[in-house]
Design a protein around this nucleic acid. Structure first.
Lengths: 160, 160
DNA sequence: CGGTGAACGTTATTTCGTAACATGGTGGCC
DNA sequence: GGCCACCATGTTACGAAATAACGTTCACCG
């Protein structure tokens, strides 16, 4: 990361306390609506993602999982992440091998990220994929999911 | 991969013999033009990518590296891949942890792929990123690279 | 209750990628 | 030519990321 500037990782400070409780409650509600279960490990991983200041690696989550410092076993976290991705509560950022909580409302949307190579921030934005979907259709492909990752420098790091 | 249909991996058959020699020669020429060196391991990895029928994992290349079955050491191949990516001769597909040779002419372009979840084919296409670049600019980001990976089903697999 | 299926716990292993340092080749420069 | 600087490679070892496989627990439903 920071090869040129020295900001703390993550332009998105994690949410805490009240806001965090509220967000977890909202997730609970959305799960209940579709007969899905926000079990303890799933809830815990979502909590860690929401509270974090930037993209979290799986082993960051594994290390932070226990309330008193005991790490989780890898499958525990990977399974929770798989669930959270499936429900749209989290996204994997392939080029970082890391995860972020979904910052965009609505149960269904495509993922796109602006990633700062300098401070490590990853900002989700609502992408307009009409051009690419048209290209895919022209090629005869049936598209299920699209992910886009743009690497560059965030406003704060550009100012340096 | 093939969870639903049984095509051979890779809609793009690799190139052989004459065409392969020609492609390697062209790469050599492009390197010479920019004072870059297409050394033996770099050339060999490019040859393997061009000859393959689909995306190749790094350890596939490592295993296939030697002409007589002896594998390469990992850094040999990873360094060659890094070089090939830098010059635009190859692309990494993040969601597969795999590599493909660049199928689009021109020394500089952004990468976008249509990936078939069924047969494993990965088709490169020339993306129009104007919408996303506009969004990035609105957010104040300076974009260096963009990659897009669309997962779905290719025409052949849809026909099943 | 007892059965069914999803989720979890646990152990071990595989897959992927890189750090670190020694060696070798190439090209410039006096 | 001899020397040097630089880039690329060879090699060893290690660290990070992810999953396989299997047994157990738990909620729900008849």
């Amino acid at each position: 990361m920071g090869t040129e500037c020295h900001h703390a990782d993550g332009a998105h400070p994690g949410i805490k306390g009240h806001a965090l409780t509220h967000a977890l409650g909202a997730a609970e509600t959305r799960c209940a609506a579709t007969q899905e279960r926000l079990t303890a490990p799933r809830r815990r991983v979502l909590e860690l993602l929401l509270g974090a200041d930037g993209p979290q690696k799986a082993y960051d989550l594994i290390a932070a999982f226990g309330e008193h410092g005991e790490p989780a076993k890898p499958p525990t976290v990977y399974r929770a992440l798989e669930f959270l991705e499936r429900l749209g509560f989290a996204h994997r950022i392939e080029s970082l091998n890391a995860y972020v909580p979904c910052r965009i409302d609505g149960t269904e949307h495509r993922a796109a990220f602006l990633i700062c190579d300098c401070c490590g921030a990853a900002e989700e934005f609502e992408p307009d994929f009409t051009a690419q979907l048209k290209a895919a259709e022209a090629a005869g492909y049936e598209v299920a999911t699209i992910t886009l990752e743009a690497r560059g420098r965030c406003p704060a790091c550009r100012a340096d």
